[in-house]
Nucleic acid binder design. Structure first.
Length: 460
RNA sequence: GGCUCGAUGGCAGAGUGGUGAUGCAGCGGCCUGCAAAGCCGUGUACAGCGGUUCGAUUCCGCUUCGAGCCUCCA
């Protein structure tokens, strides 16, 4: 069964053919800028990338999954007065830039854990790879594609005839736009490779370089680190769709300059989670993060389930109502799964339909529908349903097999007595007394449910 | 202003040139003393206008509306 993936570079779905023939796949995913917490929209992209990785593994590839940590160089804007996000975060919190990088990096990995996202095989920090970035800038400089302004070393995008192809950028159109500030830049699309430290200011993060003391631009870190760990041309590069016009276009330009490659054979992009019809934005202040959901009593896996309901290449509308509906559905699926007996084997028909769906550009939405169909199927043994769903869950990552109904807390004696009294009333067909007992229990915060095996109480 | 991408039932969201996925909610029923859960059933949904076609929600064009990028952003 062939795997086919949508490649933004080609703007079409292409059959996946790995670059190497040793069964390995190089996957680079743009990681977080650790100046603040990730929000659940950011996290949606990591869920998509996790599904991609699991599907690659389902197809028996060994995935080299590299995720970077941007802990320096991410500017608030490309203008001359652009502040570094890390330094700005430090100023806001009173901690050092290094401390906040550590804090938010830890928080990021906790979020991934909550969402059952597999840990990357390589995690690389920009600040640990300054040498590689300087070397990359030197290579670009050797091709005569850089120039120096008062605040840094810039990439001259006019020297790259294919600049912006990934985004199908209309350079002339951009130039006509009123919102583009060039400053000292020669072209509106030029970007910083190295920024100089302000003359009268001591930055917390700065390094010596052939061009003077300063720090690397944002885009060069991904090119340098991806190349270091995966080579100058690897299989798949992922990120959010907002990276298409700038960040990824720039990464490609840098790799073209250094190695004549487009860096990655496939470029895949996760779409947005919208709230109130607009994207959730880390820089605009208010946003929902994983811990916010957890504090509200939501299950992180319900959020993962919600994301899997939609295709990764379509924006999703988030609301509490939507999350609740996903949560209800997930719990029903868990309950149904839990009730099924062990010891079965996977059903060939369902497995093959499942494989076709995930291999068709990660259609998790169809897989969820298939899971419901399987649960209701009359021609598959219960134990086989469980085995088949367990197999699905290797990709879905809903932790179905780890789930069990919540343990009942100890029932106080007075509650147990009330339940017993109600049982007696029911046996006597004294419905009024039975209903009174139920009302009393409800008032005390307990729900009573009658089953063929007797009455059960649970806390409300 | 330029560019990219969208528009499916109350909500979320797949998919398809011709038999209306799936989930949540709602409604009806079965079951239950009642209830809960569960099960069964239930929806004249494909923005508008043209075009291509025997036939379009699905292909093409225009319009309207929406999102994103062009300034840091998953």
């Amino acid at each position: 069964m062939t795997l086919s993936l949508y490649d933004t570079y080609a703007r079409e779905q292409r059959e996946f053919v790995p670059i190497k023939d040793d069964g390995s796949v190089g996957l680079y995913c743009c990681g977080p800028t650790v100046y603040n917490y990730a929000h659940i929209g950011n996290l949606r992209t990591y869920i998509f990338e996790d599904i991609l990785r699991r599907v690659l593994e389902l197809n028996n590839y060994l995935v080299n999954h590299v995720v970077n940590i941007t802990d320096v160089g991410h500017l608030v804007s490309d203008a001359d007065d652009g502040e570094d996000k890390m330094e700005k975060g430090a100023a806001r919190t009173g901690k050092t830039a290094w401390e906040i990088a550590e804090i938010y990096t830890q928080a990021f990995f906790e979020d991934l854990n909550h969402l059952n996202i597999k840990a990357p095989t390589v995690i690389c920090k920009a600040t640990d790879h300054i040498e590689e970035q300087i070397a990359a800038i030197q290579q670009i400089e050797a091709k005569d594609m850089t120039y120096i302004t008062s605040d840094g070393v810039y990439f001259d995008t006019s020297r790259d005839p294919e600049y912006g192809y990934l985004a199908r950028l209309n350079i002339e159109g951009l130039q006509e736009g009123a919102r583009v500030e060039k400053g000292e830049k020669r072209n509106p699309t030029d970007f910083a490779l190295w920024k100089f430290s302000p003359a009268n200011e001591q930055r917390q993060m700065e390094w010596e370089s052939p061009w003077g003391k300063g720090f690397p631009g944002w885009h060069i870190e991904c090119s340098a680190m991806a190349t270091k760990y995966l080579g100058p041309l690897f299989d798949i590069h992922c990120g959010g769709k907002d990276h298409i016009p700038i960040h990824h276009s720039n990464e490609i330009a840098q790799s073209m300059a250094c190695y004549g490659t487009r860096l990655s054979n496939y470029w895949m992009h996760g779409y947005f989670l919208q709230t109130d019809k607009s994207k959730m934005s880390k820089s605009s202040g208010e946003f929902l993060r994983m811990q916010t959901l957890i504090d509200k009593g939501e299950d992180p896996i319900a959020y993962r389930f919600l994301c899997l309901l939609a295709h990764y290449r379509s924006d999703i509308n988030f609301s509490w109502e939507t999350l609740n509906s996903a949560s209800t559905a997930l719990n029903r699926m868990r309950e149904a799964y839990f009730q099924l007996p062990d010891g079965g084997s996977t059903d060939d028909n369902y497995v093959s339909r499942f494989t076709a769906f995930v291999n068709d550009d990660l259609n998790t939405s169809q897989v969820i529908a298939l899971a419901w169909e399987l649960l209701k199927a009359t021609d598959v043994a219960d134990a086989d349903k469980k085995a088949t769903l367990t197999y699905f869950d290797n990709v879905l990552g809903l932790r179905l097999s780890e789930w069990a109904p919540a343990e009942q807390a100890e029932i106080p004696a007075e509650i147990a007595e009330l339940v017993e009294a109600r049982q007696k009333a029911r046996a006597d067909k004294d419905w009024a007394a039975a209903d009174k007992a139920r009302d009393d229990l409800t008032a005390l915060g307990y729900e009573v449910v009658d089953t063929p095996d007797g009455s059960q109480v649970k806390t409300l």
